[in-house]
Structure formats: C-alpha cells, structure tokens
C-alpha cells in the first residue's frame, strides 16, 4: 500500500487569523485516519486545506501530485470527496438530484453507481424524489455520504459526521464508513469531536492543538496513554 495523501508544513489562514501552523500528516491508501482535538484546534481547516476551500501554503500531495494550488473543483476531479460539517447537502434539491451532483465529475451511466449506493443506504430508493431539506438530520448526513460515494473517491474527507445526531444514528453512520472502507478500499480522513468512536474506527490518529500536530500514533497507542486521553480526548 502506497501513500495516498501527504501534507507537510502546511499553513492556513482566515484573513489575519492563522489556523494551521506547519501541519504534517499522511494517509495511506485504504486507511482510515482520524484528526482529533479541541474546538478551534484546526481540524476542519486541515480538511479545507486539502480540498482547497481555504487559503493555504505548504506541500499537499495526492498520490504524488501536488494539489496545493488547486481549487475545490479541481481537487474533486482528482478523486477527493469532502463532506463538510453541517452536511452540505443541497436541501433545495431532491435526493436524486443530490446523488446526480455527487457523480458530476464523472462520465457515463449512474445506474450502476446508484445500485451500489442503495446497498449501503437502502432507504434512498423510496425517497428519490423527496426534497433533501425535508429529511431528518441523520438521513441528511447519510445522503451526504451517499453523494460522496457516487463520486467514487480515492479519499473521503469527513467533517464531524456525528454532529448533532442520536447515538444509534452515529453508530449506524460509523458502521457504514467502516463498510465503505472495507469494500471499496476508499481511504478516509475523519475529523471528530467524538474521540472514542473515531479511535475505534480509525487505525491511526493525529491530535491537533492550536494549529499544530501535538501527537500522532496508532489508535491503540493514543487510547492507552492516559495523559493524552485525559487532556486532549476528554474521556
């Protein structure tokens, strides 16, 4: 397995505020990696730096190709699916239109992809023509995931998929993420507040603190070091 994503020495800023200072991380092909840390540590910004939705400097390579100067449209074409925080579904459009947009960068028939997506989310079939905004929060999060699957990404960036959802729904979403990773071999970079669930899903994790990587290691290492667990992961 080769390295799929490399960040080294990445800075990012919103106007005057510097959000990332020299962040470095790697994601191997087919791997699930978590980014943990407190609010404002730069987790979301790290994902945004990769997809090109924030101003950034440094080295960002996807499968050996630099994406550091590319905008989100181009990054999406290279196989990065970013599911932003707050789901980013098109709530004014129907479920089916959302899925069609997921496959926007690809050519060819959608039928095959839709069948694949319906295996993970069987309920989508019956709700095809429903307006996405009328779905429940959990369903919208699943629709956002389904849309990302339609894109057939090599790398899936997930920002707080558990935000504001009931524990049962969160468990279901994480089960689907593991299944996706297992069956499609899609690499996942996961940002989460919910450290315990993420460490159970991811093989490795990075802990961010005010825009820097404070710790990194396998999930088992991070979960077993009490000091890190208590001060950074909060459980």
């Amino acid at each position: 397995m080769g390295v799929l994503l490399t960040l080294s020495d990445v800075d990012a800023r919103y106007g005057q505020v510097q959000a990332l200072r020299g962040v470095g991380l790697t994601v191997e092909e087919g791997e699930i990696v978590a980014i943990l840390g407190a609010n404002g540590a730069g987790k979301t910004t790290t994902l945004r730096a990769i997809s090109g939705t924030v101003r950034r400097r440094g080295t960002i390579e996807l499968a050996g190709k630099s994406v550091a100067r590319k905008g989100p449209e181009a990054t999406a074409r290279l196989g990065v699916a970013h599911v932003p925080e707050g789901r980013g579904t098109f709530s004014e459009l129907t479920v089916w239109e959302n899925l069609r947009l997921g496959a926007y960068v690809r050519r060819g028939s959608l039928r095959e992809d839709f069948r694949r997506v319906a295996e993970y989310f069987p309920w989508l079939e019956a709700r095809r023509s429903q307006q996405a905004g009328t779905l429940s929060g959990g369903e919208q999060q699943m629709l956002a995931l389904a849309r990302a699957v339609m894109q057939r990404p090599r790398l899936l960036l997930l920002d707080e998929p558990s935000l504001g959802l009931a524990p049962l729904v969160v468990a279901e979403i994480f089960r689907i993420i593991r299944e996706l990773n297992d069956r499609e071999g899609t690499a996942v970079l996961l940002v989460e507040q919910n450290a315990r669930t993420s460490l159970m899903t991811a093989s490795r994790a990075y802990v961010l603190e005010v825009g820097r990587v404070a710790f990194e290691g396998t999930s088992d290492e991070l979960a077993s070091q009490d000091a890190i667990r208590r001060s950074y992961l909060g459980y």
Binding site: S51, T53, G71, P72, E73, A76, R77, A81, H82, P84, G88, T89, F90, E92, L93, E97, R100, L101, G102, Y104, V105, R147, Q151
Partner: peptide, 18 residues
C-alpha cells in the same frame, strides 16, 4: 442541475466539482 446547485449552495457545489 449544476447551475441550480451553484445558485443555491455555491460552496457545496464547488466541492462536488461544479
């Protein structure tokens, strides 16, 4: 469809490659 998506949610539209 891409034009409608770009009109209602430009940021999300860019993320899917529009």
């Amino acid at each position: 469809l891409a034009m409608r998506a770009a009109a209602v949610r430009p940021q999300a539209a860019r993320l899917v490659g529009v």
